[in-house]
């Protein structure tokens, strides 16, 4: 485990997480969630949990991002708050 890499990815996780809840555009929030999941996937594989990382990459970064985009497509892109 390289701590510099770990720190950089953890910082990106926090940035993507805060960005996803603050951004006004819901499509942007969906993409930021995808980036968050991908960073988590990298973090799992750094920790040696390759199976979890694989699941995170397929379910988190792949399928759920598409679900979010589909839901935004059918509702609205702007949030009220």
């Amino acid at each position: 485990m390289i701590w510099q890499l770990d720190l950089a990815i953890l910082t990106l996780v926090v940035i993507a997480g805060i960005g996803a809840i603050t951004v006004k555009d819901l499509l942007g929030a969906a993409i930021l969630f995808g980036a968050y999941s991908f960073m988590m996937c990298l973090l799992w594989s750094i920790m040696g949990a390759v199976d979890v990382s694989f699941t995170e990459a397929t379910v988190g970064a792949g399928a759920s991002t598409v679900f979010f985009v589909a839901a935004v497509f059918r509702t609205t892109r702007r949030t009220k708050d």
Binding site: T55, V59, A63
Partner: peptide, 8 residues
């Protein structure tokens, strides 16, 4: 890998 990942 396994069922979950392959299924997705």
């Amino acid at each position: 890998g396994g069922g979950f990942q392959g299924g997705v």
